[in-house]
Amino acid sequence: MALLEVERLSVNYGAIAALEGVSLEVEAGELVTLIGANGAGKSTTLRAISRLLRPLRGGLRFGGQNLLGLPPDRVVGLGIAHCPEGRQVLSRMNVEDNLRLGAYLRRDKEVAADLERQYQLFPRLRERRRQLGGTLSGGEQQMLAIARALMSRPKLLLLDEPSLGLAPLIVREIFDILAELHRQGVSILLVEQNAQLAMRRSDRTYVLEAGRILLSGRSSELMGDPRVQQAYLGTGAA
């Protein structure tokens, strides 16, 4: 049984279908990438998993438990951390308060230790710990959003476009960190525009097109698929 099971999920925005029968799985410890064009339904998939959206129909299970019917805050309690698109840090709160809120549901004594771990992972955040979230640069906000998601000690991390609008150097830094998390055994479902980068680092890939899964398989194999190369990697024969 996979850690996350999404089964024929359909989501509508009003009368418009955003997802139509999407099925995907994430095994424990896996790094899975979801790629696709703008508007293909990548963010919608993540938002449906974290229960920000109500699906029309379909199944949603995490660790064998049915997620349908749960409010988003309960999903967090089960071990899913969703790091949303657009680096949604709390702009009126400082870095450290943002991070502490990431551990809102935790009552254990290791929160301080985890805070220290995040600062080790993202030394830039330690320098800016008293600064308001809204005053950070784009890359720093992205780091803060990821670190905040990690503060809940998730079993599964949902990451939405971590590279969006960032300088290449920072993108590399962030992906290095993702690789490190992956090595530590955190399961990750990554939505990414930069398909090449994401596929190279991930175990498996799903290709989403117009609300449906078009292709799926091991990332290394899919990278050789001409359809993927042409549409998403920009390396296929023109």
Binding site: P71, Q88, Y104
Partner: peptide, 21 residues
């Protein structure tokens, strides 16, 4: 702080495990 998070951005607050309602 959780309340302030709800005030600033209810969606984000709920993603942090805060029960907005």
């Amino acid at each position: 702080k959780a309340l302030f998070a709800v005030a600033e951005n209810p969606a984000v607050a709920s993603l942090l495990g805060i029960s907005v309602s």
